[in-house]
Amino acid sequence: MIDILYFAWVRERIGLPRERVETAAETVADLVAELAAREERYAVAFADTSALRVALDQELSEFSAPLSGVREVAFFPPMTGG
């Protein structure tokens, strides 16, 4: 099981802030493909991953990164702090 968190417009498009999923995905990109195939709202949110960022266990990462041992995945748009 893996916790998936969504922030900002990704959260709004998918319609929930977090969920727990059972997945056999090996990489972030595999997980994205799995989620996008679920429902239209996921497909819309993940349509352009170049507009998204991903964090694995609260560290910024890449879509090509492996998911083994990861407990928390977060998807969000580029950050706008400061």
Partner: peptide, 22 residues
């Protein structure tokens, strides 16, 4: 802090809401 701290700004305005783009 602007682009590596996980904050997202949304403007709530008279004409609706919009996320501030990086």
């Amino acid at each position: 802090l602007k682009s590596r701290a996980p904050f997202w700004k949304k403007e709530i305005g008279a004409d609706g809401d919009s996320w501030v783009a990086a």
